[in-house]
């Protein structure tokens, strides 16, 4: 089913809670706003966040003769989304599965979803270097994977784990587009003092250490968590914010590598 997909990008991080899903969903929304047809696949089975972030929690996946029909985030059907969250009856239900079951689910996501002709498929992943990652890597061998965007936060505890993820990419031959440093500095709303809550420059020094391009720093901005922003591109809603400048850099990096 991925033959009709023009470009595949992975969003990876060894560490959890660094903003993989936020970046994935915002990148997908931004690409859609730029006129592309986009697919967003969430392979985090134990903790799917994409349905919430795109405000699609009530949606269901339908079965057609060709396969699973993804959920469309917009009426023009330019952003197709697939996540295990759409298959759960109750949002509090846990998926208590060991590796082999997760593997077969992800295989189905990669082979049985009718993506139709999309320009970009963004794959959001769980933290780690285990079953989910190995399965995606193995199944993408036959499809051209354009590369991985690696997300980290600045502190050393996170950089340690992300370093392992980069080793994973190198060992398995996934090209790395670049590193994004998220939660980099918080500007106090009362006094405008910028505090590096989670230290600073971890992403830059990581990119130098492993010789991978550094894409951008995304500052901490509680706006991104606002309920009314769910499902909307920050580039459209707050075009002048530091955050949207950072996201447009990531999008530029993705569309640039397409031309190359």
């Amino acid at each position: 089913m991925l033959e009709s997909v023009k470009h595949v990008f992975l969003v990876l991080s060894g560490k959890g809670g660094v903003g993989k899903s936020t970046v994935s969903s915002q990148v997908a929304l931004a690409l859609k706003e730029s006129g592309f047809k986009v697919g967003l696949l969430d392979i985090d089975l134990c903790g799917p966040s994409i349905p919430y972030l795109l405000d699609l929690e009530v949606e269901d996946v339908h079965q057609s003769s060709e396969g699973w029909v993804p959920v469309f985030a917009d009426s023009e059907q330019k952003l197709a989304v697939m996540s295990i969250g759409f298959l759960l009856k109750n949002r509090n239900d846990s998926i208590v599965w060991r590796g082999p079951k997760k593997t077969s689910m992800i295989k189905q996501f990669l082979t049985d979803v009718v993506w139709q002709d999309i320009d970009y498929l963004i794959i959001d992943t769980p933290p780690g270097t285990s079953d989910e990652h190995i399965t995606v890597m193995e199944n993408l061998r036959n499809v051209k994977c354009d590369g991985a965007i690696v997300i980290t936060t600045p502190q050393a505890v996170s950089v340690d784990d992300v370093l392992k993820e980069i080793t994973f990419c190198r060992k398995t031959g996934i090209p790395i587009v670049g590193i994004v440093e998220n939660m980099s500095g918080f500007v106090c709303p009362s006094c405008s003092e910028c505090t590096n809550i989670f230290s600073s420059n971890g992403g830059v020094s990581l990119s130098e250490m492993v010789n991978v391009p550094f894409i951008t720093k995304v500052p901490i901005d509680p706006t991104i968590g606002k309920l009314e922003l769910r499902g909307h591109s920050i580039l459209k809603m707050y075009p002048d914010s530091e955050m949207s400048k950072a996201f447009s850099k990531i999008v530029l990096e993705i569309t640039k590598s397409k031309e190359a």
């Binding site: 285990s130 190995i134 392992k164 993820e165 980069i166 080793t167």
Partner: peptide, 13 residues
């Protein structure tokens, strides 16, 4: 080495 990745499926973990 601290950069070594543990690329293991479930049973090995």
């Amino acid at each position: 080495n601290s950069s070594d990745a543990i690329i293991w499926r479930g049973p090995k973990k």
